[in-house]
Amino acid sequence: MTKILLLGCGNMGGALLKAWAANTDHEFTVADPARPDLPEGVSQVGSVEDLGEQLFDYLIVALKPQLIDNVLPDYLPRLKPSGVISSIAAGYAAAKLAEHAPGRSVIRIMPNLPAVIGKGVSGLYAHGPVPETASSEIERLALCSSDIVWVDSEDMLDRLTAVAGSGPGYVFEILRAYVEAAEKLGFSKQDSLNLVLGTVRGTLELALDSDLSLEDLRKNVTSKGGTTAAGLHALNGEEEFSALIGRTLQAAYERAVELR
């Protein structure tokens, strides 16, 4: 049986662990002194001493980045010689993980927030030579809670972070502004929320189910000289909104590079 040690178990790590435990037959152990609420069958230890002589096939880092340098070295001896390191920690480069364990295979997973409800999008990056069995196993774990995109460099993972990792924050802010604008048109806060979230949910499901491009779908709802056309002109008549989204992603990407 595959044995996996999860180092740290915060909100994202805990959510992913629930999906992994429910959809695989692996043996999971969590190393976290906070003693989190864990799925049935998952073991928990508060320190490396509690592991005894156990060895693991995979060590998955789910710590805050600033803790990794101090904590990871203590647990590396518990990884089998052929074992693989993976990480869901944002802002901590695979190269840094590899420096802690020269010769080890390293795979980073960049999940986004919707993974906590099984509807995420995750980026995967294999640093250096990684056995096909290991990349397939990490891919299998990621698919438990998200769609996946493999990238071939850490730089592309930073770009994916700007698009998908940080993306829920942008969407929440757009929704907040949309609801606020509806309130200013005279609707109550609750009605504004219902109108906006219902409109967005239906539009998203329509886009997901359609073979048409997003541009064609937009054209189909936009009559010449109509209300939608007027609103779209105010939103992006001179491509201001397109430029703003571009600047948003660029700023997030540049910050991701700084944090490597």
Rank of each mutant, 00 (worst) to 15 (best):
69 D>T: 11
70 N>K: 15
76 L>Y: 05
77 P>G: 00
78 R>D: 04
79 L>A: 01
79 L>Y: 00
82 S>I: 07
84 V>D: 00
84 V>T: 14
84 V>F: 01
85 I>Y: 01
85 I>M: 12
86 S>V: 06
86 S>E: 03
88 I>N: 03
88 I>P: 03
88 I>V: 13
91 G>D: 10
91 G>I: 12
92 Y>T: 03
94 A>F: 04
95 A>N: 12
96 K>W: 12
97 L>N: 14
97 L>A: 07
98 A>P: 09
99 E>L: 12
100 H>Q: 15
100 H>A: 12
100 H>M: 14
102 P>I: 10
102 P>N: 05
103 G>K: 06
106 V>P: 13
106 V>Q: 10
108 R>D: 03
108 R>H: 07
109 I>K: 11
110 M>Y: 05
111 P>A: 01
111 P>Q: 05
112 N>R: 05
112 N>L: 02
113 L>K: 05
115 A>M: 06
117 I>L: 08
119 K>R: 12
120 G>T: 05
120 G>L: 05
121 V>P: 10
121 V>I: 15
122 S>V: 00
124 L>W: 01
125 Y>G: 10
126 A>T: 11
126 A>Q: 13
127 H>V: 13
127 H>K: 13
130 V>N: 10
131 P>I: 02
132 E>N: 13
132 E>S: 14
134 A>D: 07
136 S>I: 09
136 S>A: 14
136 S>D: 14
138 I>H: 02
139 E>V: 06
140 R>K: 14
141 L>S: 05
141 L>M: 11
142 A>V: 07
142 A>M: 00
145 S>G: 09
146 S>V: 04
146 S>M: 01
148 I>Y: 02
149 V>D: 09
150 W>P: 08
152 D>R: 15
153 S>Q: 11
153 S>C: 09
153 S>K: 08
155 D>S: 13
155 D>G: 12
155 D>Q: 13
157 L>N: 04
157 L>H: 04
157 L>Q: 03
157 L>P: 06
160 L>E: 01
161 T>W: 02
162 A>C: 04
163 V>K: 13
165 G>M: 00
166 S>F: 09
169 G>V: 12
